[in-house]
Design a protein around this nucleic acid. Sequence first.
DNA 1: CATGAATGAGTATTCATTCAT
DNA 2: CATGAATGAATACTCATTCAT
Lengths: 203, 203, 203, 203
Amino acid sequence: MGKIDIKKKVKENALFQNAFDLFTNKGFAKTTISDIVERAGLAKGTFYLYFKDKYDLRDKLIVHKAAQLFTEAHQEILDQSVEGFENQILCMTDYIIDRFKKEHNLLQFIAKNLSWGVFKNVFGNSNEKESVPFYRYYLHSMEQYQITCEKPEIMLFTIIELIGSTCYNCIILEQPVTMDEYLPYLHKSILKIVEVFTEDNMT
Amino acid sequence: MGKIDIKKKVKENALFQNAFDLFTNKGFAKTTISDIVERAGLAKGTFYLYFKDKYDLRDKLIVHKAAQLFTEAHQEILDQSVEGFENQILCMTDYIIDRFKKEHNLLQFIAKNLSWGVFKNVFGNSNEKESVPFYRYYLHSMEQYQITCEKPEIMLFTIIELIGSTCYNCIILEQPVTMDEYLPYLHKSILKIVEVFTEDNMT
Amino acid sequence: MGKIDIKKKVKENALFQNAFDLFTNKGFAKTTISDIVERAGLAKGTFYLYFKDKYDLRDKLIVHKAAQLFTEAHQEILDQSVEGFENQILCMTDYIIDRFKKEHNLLQFIAKNLSWGVFKNVFGNSNEKESVPFYRYYLHSMEQYQITCEKPEIMLFTIIELIGSTCYNCIILEQPVTMDEYLPYLHKSILKIVEVFTEDNMT
Amino acid sequence: MGKIDIKKKVKENALFQNAFDLFTNKGFAKTTISDIVERAGLAKGTFYLYFKDKYDLRDKLIVHKAAQLFTEAHQEILDQSVEGFENQILCMTDYIIDRFKKEHNLLQFIAKNLSWGVFKNVFGNSNEKESVPFYRYYLHSMEQYQITCEKPEIMLFTIIELIGSTCYNCIILEQPVTMDEYLPYLHKSILKIVEVFTEDNMT
DNA sequence: CATGAATGAGTATTCATTCAT
DNA sequence: CATGAATGAATACTCATTCAT
């Protein structure tokens, strides 16, 4: 990567980071491009060299942040040497919840914007540096622990949607209960969902 | 209700309905108050006699639409004379999914905006005409069928969040699969969640 | 016309007049909508209640100004009691040239923008107050003086185009000669053109 | 001309040609320097090595295109071995009209921009390669056919202005008639104008 | 010579809100 | 009660020009 390319990457990151801060603090609608470039220390026109408009920046930012989160969740499983498929799923759950508890901003941003379509992008997008081996690892882990699951994608989808939507309510709104109170039920629900998809007698 | 009150109600409904159409077709951000009043056949100033601003209208609209939906789901259970608690839950699920399949607009609007906080409003809000006996019926049904559940609210919360978020993906985006394909898994997952909250051996 | 309609007309005229001054002094491209409303003493948004954009204003202004000019040329013929068809044509020519000599602004504006399509609008546009009986008078005059002309419209077109384009060069640019020097040749050329279209032996 | 000079000429021509295409398709005002260099396959900065700005390019382009046109009209007269002064004038007229009929772009561009001032440049500008012997030939031809004309320049001016402005209306706008219909009248008018300037009894 | 990333002044346009009628 | 003309702050986006490479 040449000197110029490095400079460009630095600027793109400055735009990403400052946009994220503003989106999560002021809200997307109230954040202006002027705000973003001002905080990033760049000229207005420079913004348009990197992104088409505010929406383009947001879409790319969602993928960027979601990829980061899952990469780190995956790393956590490795760091903790968690054994067993269900334990790994719960470890991922807990890691994500923990991050969300610490970073409401991140939760707010991801929860409102992350759809399964975007999610798949996160794993498939090969020219993203942060491209995650998470999904591959997830499939590999089932194999390793000899778990039979005909629809692994649908199972993961169900689990992640449940985590995402309940997190938003319990952590941000503390409705109907706090996440601390909800967590045991969430764990049990997730394990039951795993059962649904891995029982032998699927019709 | 006097003549004048009826006229006012008519105008309010015109604003509600046209705002809903516009929000769901053009998106909330791109819908202007001018758009709404123009379609409703009213003058700009009139808008402010009914709502504080666009956000005020939206918030009231969410409650309005959600209350309608659950009232109708409840009615469906009664019309079909569905027996058994689980069957009633599944009937509600199917009714909601059916409506969402027919009215993507409604799904989009509710899914993006309905939080548990709003949801509770739907039941508690006494000055809403459509205020629903749904939640009361839900509790009553558990009693009738002698279901022991320590946290009925949390159970309903879990089920509804799962329905809401998966509907959005499967129906609107058809990701990762269509709702027709997903439905059996959703049913099983919901039944398992009911198990989680009604088993005797809750720790 | 109600009070409000009068107020609206006043504002429209303020926009017209100030836009004309600015277009002719700074040029169309360099005149901004801000300039126009500022000079007219109106708010920016008000502009858009009257015109779609700068181009819309310009197009309407051309018709407005051209109609004015021909109405006045026609009036001049009446005031001077000019007799004879050719004399009336020359009187019109001289009046227009005279106005252009005094108001380079007007010449510049009209010459660059007046096409025959617009010109016909000037006569036909019935909801313009200034709508001119000029063309009707022109036909009537030929009849009165028993002039036979198969293509009166094409004759007028030829004359007016010649006047317009030579005026621009001789008056504004003084190229290749000044209008004072050119005028006798222009008169002769016009008379010859009248001959072309009114000779008996047209093929 | 050295290798480098040839390369430069190639680039200049690329800028000329692409600018012409853009000016005539999108209009001058809406054409940006970025557009031009992009189509020409050059870098933005390169533009400024050849032209001061967009206006500079346009002015040079007008001369360039007008010179080309008159050179070709002149060549046509030679190729066809047209005899007689009036016939040569009409041949030039027909050639120009024909080109304009085939290339509306060219007509639009020349008609809106060509003033007599520019026109004279076309003949006088010695560092233009295409510089035309047209005007010299025009004078020479009158001499050859023993035509007495005190103001040859004014005569040519009158003719060319009439051609230019009527072409624009009849060819582009087809107003008030098409050029096919107008042409006989134009020919007659031009011949009459020649009469005006060549009659013995000029006052 | 040629490049193209970066700049930032400049402008059009929108739209919530008010208030005289 | 209802209207809709007027407002003007707020913002997105463009593009000519420069200059380090």
